[in-house]
Simulated assay, not measured.
Amino acid sequence: MQPKSVSLIVTTYNWPSALELVLLSIKKQSHLPNEVIIADDGSGEETRELIQRYQATFPIPLIHSWQKDNGFRAARSRNLAIAKSQSNYIVMIDGDMVLHRHFIRDHKRIAKTNYFTQGRRVILTPSLTETLFKNNQYPISLFSSAVKNKLNAICCPLLSVILSPLLSKKSYQSIRSCNFAAWRTDIIAINGFNDDFVGWGREDSEFVVRLLNNGVKRQDLRFGGIAYHLYHNENTRKNLEDNDKRLELAIKNKEHYCQNGITQHLADAEVKHD
């Protein structure tokens, strides 16, 4: 079943130059999403001004969902953005993922009831990333020596239809919410992301463990849904031990619902909407 509408959620934190490249790539989509929601984890004034400037000319609604800067809280930030969404299908990317022009088309094509979709990323070198920033452009060639994992950069609908089912994994392993899609109802059914996750890591894996435990299956999108990952230094892992423990508990207890999730944000969004 094809989605009736698509909300694209873009996480960001104080990297407006990267976010601008992402927004430019969204504007050039062959199939536009119905809305874009920036899940902002506490960025400053420069990011706010960038979003306001793009809102004036953006071809679809561009919504700024912001929370206070109180550490790395990607889970809560995504929940806030999803709560504001108006579409029945949610596609999530990070604010350092520049999109191939058929990104949304490919995600819509593969969407299937009772499945979530894990996309892939193309790793860019520091030199190519610097060039993109310098020229404020995003076209990237598959044949560039600065593109590392070239197999992920091939866009071929025929290969995608044939090989995506064959190459799909069944577990939470290698989950990356930087290129991910799911039905909004499936997300709400498990209470979204777990707001208890603070600091980098495992909030997306734990989220997927609960989706799987709730009967939602995984499919991997191959040879389509291409997103180019801008180079940057790795985030700090200081909270990873605690986050690993939360993930292990979700697996051990076969959890399908978290207590501190999206429900509270849905209630807030409804009040503001009224």
Results as ranks from 00 to 15, higher is better:
24 L>A: 08
221 L>Y: 09
53 R>M: 14
214 N>F: 11
204 D>K: 03
40 D>T: 10
200 W>Y: 15
257 Y>I: 05
8 L>T: 02
29 Q>C: 06
228 Y>Q: 11
162 I>Q: 06
259 Q>F: 09
10 V>D: 02
83 A>Q: 12
188 I>Q: 09
189 A>F: 11
271 V>S: 06
14 N>Y: 11
102 H>Q: 09
4 K>W: 01
6 V>D: 01
215 G>H: 11
60 I>Y: 11
79 N>M: 10
274 D>P: 12
109 R>N: 08
63 I>Q: 01
238 K>S: 13
24 L>C: 09
92 M>L: 10
76 R>G: 10
53 R>D: 15
107 H>F: 04
95 G>L: 06
187 I>G: 06
182 A>C: 09
164 S>Y: 03
236 T>F: 11
58 F>W: 11
189 A>P: 14
163 L>F: 12
96 D>A: 02
119 G>Y: 00
86 Q>M: 09
75 A>T: 08
249 L>W: 05
64 H>M: 06
139 P>Y: 12
211 L>W: 13
217 K>S: 15
20 E>H: 09
92 M>R: 02
97 M>F: 13
241 E>D: 10
203 E>K: 01
2 Q>D: 04
211 L>K: 05
212 L>K: 04
181 A>C: 01
27 K>A: 13
159 L>A: 06
90 I>R: 04
209 V>S: 01
224 G>A: 10
220 D>Y: 08
89 Y>T: 00
79 N>C: 07
72 F>P: 03
37 I>C: 01
62 L>A: 02
240 L>F: 14
139 P>G: 09
256 H>D: 12
270 E>K: 15
44 G>T: 11
73 R>C: 12
114 N>F: 01
53 R>T: 14
84 K>M: 04
35 E>T: 13
60 I>D: 06
108 K>S: 07
124 L>Y: 08
35 E>Q: 08
80 L>T: 11
72 F>W: 13
254 K>A: 08
178 C>A: 14
1 M>F: 14
185 T>Y: 10
194 N>A: 03
72 F>N: 13
177 S>F: 10
91 V>P: 02
99 L>I: 02
